[in-house]
Amino acid sequence: MENTTVKAKKSIGSLIVGEWNTKTIVAIAIGAALYGVLMVYGGIPIFTNTQLSVAMIIPVVVGGLFGPLPALVCCGVGNVLADLIGGWGMWFDWSIGNAIMAFCVGLLPVYGARITEGIFSVKHAIIYAVCCILGNVIAFGVITPIFSYLLYASDLNITFLQAFAATLGNSAVLIIIGIPILILLAKRYKARSNLSQDKTGEY
């Protein structure tokens, strides 16, 4: 029993950083690879140049299971890898933006949606949706344009239009596909975790 109460009172700092053991590292690596592959090959084109990137699901899963900082590293590395295999040159402005967006999306354990223990309620879903939209707006509306302008002297009007499209598309994917996947994952973990301590042996 003591063990569970200690587990419940994790500080926010440790929740943000997450546990950096071998399992986390491997999960981040595989998440980054998935992100890279889906970013390059798994888009659903809407117009020319704009697509709903399904890759946005990966930070949700990594963030839900391991915390925001792993999600940030996963997305940052994944985006750099996507640039490497996609062969459209390095776009560090978007990598940084995506990493920050992933951090906001991966905040799940911080506000109490512990997927690994099967906890994900309607309240958490609403906070999650708000976090997704806010994260997208901060990452693509503020940070990416700043870096775009400084590093590549991109035209800000175009960058803002692209950021607007990206925000809409990402938020749609994050909410429409993300919430069902989170519910599914929580159910899977709950099915495994409803073991109770056997008290019959205690006399």
Binding site: A29, A33, G78, L81
Partner: peptide, 16 residues
């Protein structure tokens, strides 16, 4: 640990 993440991810891409 970050280096291992990068190399592992890079190596897993064809599998995925």
């Amino acid at each position: 640990k970050v280096c291992i993440i990068v190399s592992l991810a890079y190596r897993t891409i064809p599998d995925i």
